[in-house]
C-alpha cells in the first residue's frame, strides 16, 4: 500500500500570478521517477476530506519534493495550497503514483516534450532529471502559455537551455505578442510541429501534457505526421478539478 505520510511546507516560490511551487520536506520519501504524481489529502476540523492529484515538479535527485500548483478560482484544493498553506504547515500526501508517463533518464532516443500551461510540470521534472544525470540525447521542450507573464519556470528554463547539453526550449504565446518577442505567437499547429519535432525516422520519445483540447490537438497532429502512436505518451487535465 502506498501509505499516507506527512510533508512539511518548507518554501513557496511564486512562478506566475496564478501558479506557485511548494517545496516540501517529506522525511521518509521513497523517491520517484520523473513524470510521476502524488495524491494530496486535506482534512477539515469536522473530518471532511478532499483529495486531488498533483504532478511532481522536482527531479528524483532534488533534496525537496516540489509540487507546482495552479490556483483554480473555483477549485476546492488548489486555492488552499496556493494562498492558505504557509511554511511550517503540514500536508498529507501519498505517492509516487503512475508508471507510464515517466522518463527514466537513460534513454538515448531524442526527447520531445510538449506542454500547455501547468502541463509543463511533469515535463520540468524530466528536464531537471536530465540535467542531473547528464543525458546527452537531444531534447526539446515546446511550451505553450497564454502570455509572457504566464510562463512557468521561465528563468530556470533559460538557464537549463544555456547549460544543459542538447536542450532547446521553444515558447509559443497564444494571447499576446510582447515587443521584441522572438518565439511563436499562436496555438501549436502542424507547421510549428514540423519545425520543432524531429522527423518520425528519428523516433523521438514524446510526452504531451496540458488541457484536454491541447493534448488532443497535439497528439492527433503528431500521429498525422507519421509518428508512432505508441511513442506518444499523454496526460490530460480537464477544466474542472482543483
Amino acid at each position: 500500500m502506498i501509505r499516507w505520510q506527512f510533508a512539511t511546507l518548507a518554501e513557496v516560490v511564486p512562478e506566475t500570478p496564478r501558479v506557485s511551487s511548494l517545496y516540501l520536506d517529506v522525511p521518509d520519501w521513497q523517491g520517484h521517477l520523473a513524470g510521476q504524481h502524488v495524491d494530496v489529502r486535506l482534512t477539515a476540523d469536522d473530518g471532511y476530506q478532499a483529495e486531488r492529484s498533483y504532478s511532481i515538479a522536482s527531479a528524483p535527485e532534488d533534496r525537496r519534493l516540489a509540487l507546482t500548483v495552479e490556483r483554480l478560482e473555483d477549485g476546492e484544493v488548489s486555492p488552499y495550497l496556493v494562498g492558505e498553506l504557509r511554511t511550517g504547515d503540514r500536508l498529507e500526501l501519498r505517492g509516487p503514483i503512475g508508471g507510464y508517463f515517466v522518463w527514466r533518464g537513460d534513454e538515448q532516443r531524442p526527447l520531445l516534450l510538449i506542454g500547455g500551461g501547468s502541463g509543463v510540470v511533469p515535463l520540468m521534472s524530466m528536464l531537471r532529471h536530465r540535467a542531473h544525470v547528464g543525458n546527452r540525447a537531444p531534447a526539446r521542450l515546446l511550451f505553450s502559455s497564454r502570455t509572457l507573464a504566464d510562463v512557468i519556470y521561465r528563468e530556470e528554463l533559460e538557464r537549463l537551455a544555456a547549460s544543459a547539453h542538447g536542450l532547446q526550449v521553444l515558447h509559443t504565446l497564444t494571447r499576446e505578442k510582447p515587443a521584441g518577442w522572438t518565439g511563436y505567437t499562436r496555438r501549436v499547429d502542424e507547421a510549428m510541429l514540423q519545425e520543432v519535432a524531429w522527423p518520425r525516422q528519428d523516433a523521438p520519445d514524446v510526452f504531451v501534457c496540458g488541457p484536454t483540447p491541447f493534448v488532443e490537438a497535439v497528439a492527433t497532429l503528431l500521429v498525422g505526421m507519421g509518428h508512432d502512436a505508441r511513442s506518444i505518451k499523454t496526460e490530460r487535465f480537464g477544466a474542472t478539478g482543483g
Binding site: 495524491d39 489529502r41 476530506q49 478532499a50 483529495e51 476546492e76 507510464y100 508517463f101 484536454t212 488532443e216 497528439a219 492527433t220 503528431l222 500521429v223 502512436a229 505508441r230 506518444i232 505518451k233 499523454t234 490530460r236 487535465f237 480537464g238 477544466a239 474542472t240 478539478g241
Partner: peptide, 15 residues
Amino acid sequence: GQYVVTDFPVLSAGP
C-alpha cells in the same frame, strides 16, 4: 476520496 464534476473530463495514455 472522490468529488463530483458536472463536465466530463478526458483521460487517456496516448493519442
